[in-house]
Design a protein around this nucleic acid. Structure first.
Length: 403
DNA sequence: AAACTACCGACA
DNA sequence: GTCGGTAGTT
């Protein structure tokens, strides 16, 4: 790496605060290119105006940006490199002390305490809401491997390459106005999107029609994208209600967007997999029938799981959930069982023997007061509303049908 | 309100 | 047949 060092800037950052290997392929973002570079791995993400490149050592994050022609002058480059650093801090939410959170969760939760050391550096990304929304509309009934291919295909089809580097073209994520065009759903279907093609086209059109499809002056984002970002300042329930208006967005997808791009750190998205974790490790009642059939996810079950995990982990429950979720993916992989949602080709997935076995049931720890953490002035999440929030999804959808 | 079905494609 | 959901219907 030493020979490449001049091209990279370095940022001191212990791996316990951020593990790129874990975070960038655990199903949060589906757009990072992962390259093997000798002994090392490089991660690249194409933004609207630059490609961000990352590498990591145990103590340091190395970063640089590629720019489209014309290449910036040395002065301009210095300025833009500074912007990249600002972006990194924002995207990885580096002002949030992950080690402090791990300690907090360990105090509250014996299950977490027993496995935390094996899964360090797993944090929630602060993603672009528009990209996040479309990506997770793709995620229904789907796995990480295929979602990644679909998102890649969508970018290649609908946005021109920003630049070419080492023979590889880098496409940004297309804006809403582009995906709102007629005919997009047919094209996406031909690209293998299935029934999600219509969801994406209709959601893009609805968003652009309702909140503006013009590019904002002096801005790389369109008006509707800025509107989505403004939901970061809304209360969780209000933001969720807005998201549920879109086609192809149910409770789970909405919660993923709330957690991963709208700053709603307490939100725990519940799928069948998370449900299983809650049953196996947190003593949630197993609603699956005596026939052993898998229980379908109902609003009630969703709310029960949500409430339980919020009580266990507290204000950053959504963040804790991602650690357990990622850990469980790897646990399954180590058993040689199909890892739910894992890439079919994951050469770098380390075989890790979990020190807890599926089936362990631990008592729920007593509810301890939430210690004051950073960003405590955010809109407050009302934990008692978890159950009601579960049925809210139904209400919103019903209202749309009736109207 | 809860339960059922269809949907696209990959996988066992 | 299963599955990292959602929409539409009863």
């Amino acid at each position: 790496m030493a020979s490449l060092l001049p091209a990279f800037q370095s940022l001191p950052l212990p791996i316990v605060q951020l593990s790129l290997a874990a975070v960038l392929k655990c199903g949060q973002s589906f757009r990072w290119a992962i390259l093997d570079v000798g002994e090392d791995t490089e991660y690249r993400l194409c933004l609207r105006d630059r490609v961000v490149c990352l590498r990591q050592s145990p103590t340091t994050l190395f970063y640089r940006a590629l720019y489209p022609d014309p290449q910036p002058t040395p002065t301009q480059k210095a300025l833009r490199d500074a912007e990249t650093l600002v972006w990194l801090n924002d995207y990885f939410q580096l002002d949030v002390d992950l080690v402090g959170l791990y300690n907090e969760w360990s105090t509250r939760d014996p299950v977490f305490a027993r496995m935390q050391s094996r899964f360090e550096g797993i944090r929630i990304l602060r993603q672009d809401p528009w990209e996040n929304l479309i990506s997770f509309i793709c995620s229904s009934n789907n796995n990480i491997s295929r979602i990644t291919k679909m998102v890649q295909a969508l970018c290649t089809e609908y946005s021109p390459p920003l630049l070419t580097y080492e023979g590889e073209k880098y496409h940004p994520f297309p804006p809403p106005s582009v995906l709102a065009q007629p005919g997009v759903s047919a094209t996406l279907r031909s690209l293998g999107f299935g029934y999600r093609a219509e969801f994406i086209n209709r959601t893009a059109k609805m968003l652009a029609d309702t909140h503006g499809r013009m590019p904002l002056p002096n801005d790389t984002f369109e008006a509707s994208e800025r509107w989505l970002m403004s939901l970061r300042n809304s209360r969780t329930d209000d933001a969720r209600e807005e998201l549920l208006k879109f086609v192809g967005v149910g409770r789970k997808v909405a919660d993923c967007v709330l957690l991963m791009s709208l700053d709603k750190k307490e939100v725990v998205p519940v799928d069948t997999h998370v449900h299983q974790i809650a049953v196996k490790h947190y003593g949630l009642k197993d609603a699956s029938g005596p026939s052993g059939k898998k229980a379908t996810m109902t609003p009630k079950i969703y709310g029960d799981v949500n409430t339980k995990l919020f009580r266990v982990w507290g204000d950053y429950a959504g963040w804790a959930h991602s650690v357990l979720f990622t850990a469980d993916l790897k646990s399954f992989a180590s058993y040689g069982l199909p890892a739910p949602g894992s890439r079919t080709t994951s050469p770098s997935s380390t075989k890790i023997a979990p020190d807890f076995m599926p089936g362990d049931i631990l008592p729920t720890p007593p509810l301890t007061p939430v210690s004051s953490l950073k960003r405590s002035n955010d809109p407050v999440h009302c934990s008692s509303d978890c159950q009601e929030a579960a049925t809210l999804a139904e209400r919103v959808k019903r209202r749309r049908r009736g109207a």
